[in-house]
């Protein structure tokens, strides 16, 4: 096992972790501010990917496709918030789960109705494709590096937004005491729509960016959604910092486990059995990580409340 391979896999893990962060940040923000569990977040990821694939197919421009993904997901998020989600803020969690489950059914089958069951393809633009040479002689796909860069900038942007801007102050105040900030004259229902649309736009962006290296198809959002849940359970619900660290941990565990566990088992098992046991255990690795964090800290690494 060479160093180059290890570094490549760490970069892969970082890249998938950072994309998970875009999903988890929106989820955790929506939960932190509105106290809502949103299963349909994966559908917004899918909406972003389909919008990007459709626009890229029509115009050939990847940048326009990204803009379309952001706009379509934010718009879908805002509409869903105003029509359905708004009625659920005071409802029990069971109702939130069911209503957002219903939204998944509507989104998934609706998309299948419009686009058909076959996957769409979104190509990496030529100026971002191909490998790049990193220091130490490592060849690494440029696009994946760009994903890491975009994700990191979004993370910094989110930090700036919540810590340094007026709307960020309102968001943080909304997490702590919604009656008080409503009394201070902030339009709370507008704030909720904005937060929901922001979370949706992040999910849509992730969907479009990842859609270019995987296929764009119905149901693509749910596996990512469930991993994002694992991320925010690990990081602590409501904490963007927790979502970031949790996402990187999950991304690295998932990627490195898939590569190294089979290798590890080869040390004391025959090859076939080692590959099978290793890959079966690797598929469980992130959930084991989650259980360990839970035993240690039931509210997650940075969670303040249960």
């Amino acid at each position: 096992m060479s160093t180059i391979l290890i570094i490549e896999q760490i970069l892969n893990g970082l890249q998938s972790g950072i994309m998970l962060f875009l999903m988890a940040a929106g989820l955790t923000l929506i939960f932190g501010v509105m106290g809502l569990i949103n299963l349909a977040h994966g559908s917004l990821y899918m909406v972003g990917a389909f919008a990007a694939a459709a626009v890229a197919g029509a115009t050939g421009s990847f940048l326009l496709a990204l803009v379309a993904a952001l706009a379509a997901a934010a718009l879908a998020g805002a509409i869903v918030e105003m029509v359905v989600i708004r009625r659920l803020y005071k409802a029990p969690h069971l109702d939130q789960v069911l209503a957002t489950f219903a939204l998944i059914l509507i989104f998934s089958e609706g998309t299948r109705w419009i686009f058909g069951s076959f996957p769409l393809f979104l190509d990496v633009p030529s100026y971002l494709s191909g490998p790049i040479r990193l220091p130490g002689g490592i060849q690494y796909p440029l696009y994946r590096l760009v994903l890491i860069g975009v994700g990191l900038s979004v993370a910094i942007g989110l930090w700036w937004l919540t810590a340094r801007t007026r709307i960020g102050i309102q968001i943080r105040a909304g997490e702590n005491d919604r009656e008080m900030i409503a009394a201070l004259g902030v339009d709370i229902s507008k704030l909720y729509t904005i937060v929901f649309a922001l979370g949706a736009a992040l999910a849509g962006l992730a969907g479009a960016l990842v859609g270019a290296i995987q296929s764009v198809q119905v149901g693509m959002g749910e596996p990512v959604l469930i991993l994002a849940f694992v991320v925010i359970v690990i990081g602590g619900i409501g904490s963007i910092k927790g979502a970031f660290i949790g996402a990187i941990l999950v991304g690295l565990t998932d990627t490195l486990g898939g590569i190294f566990l089979p290798q590890l088992f080869k040390l004391f098992m025959e090859t076939g059995a080692a590959t099978q046991t290793g890959s079966a255990l690797a598929s469980m690795a992130v959930y084991v990580l989650m259980s360990l964090v839970l035993i240690w800290r039931p509210t997650g690494l940075f969670g303040a409340r249960a």
Partner: peptide, 24 residues
């Protein structure tokens, strides 16, 4: 060990763990 939303997400995650295990 947890309640509320955590419980929902954790049970979902454990269910998914069995799903992926059975696939691999």
């Amino acid at each position: 060990r947890t309640t509320g939303v955590y419980f929902i997400m954790i049970t979902l995650a454990f269910g998914q763990m069995f799903f992926f295990f059975s696939i691999s």
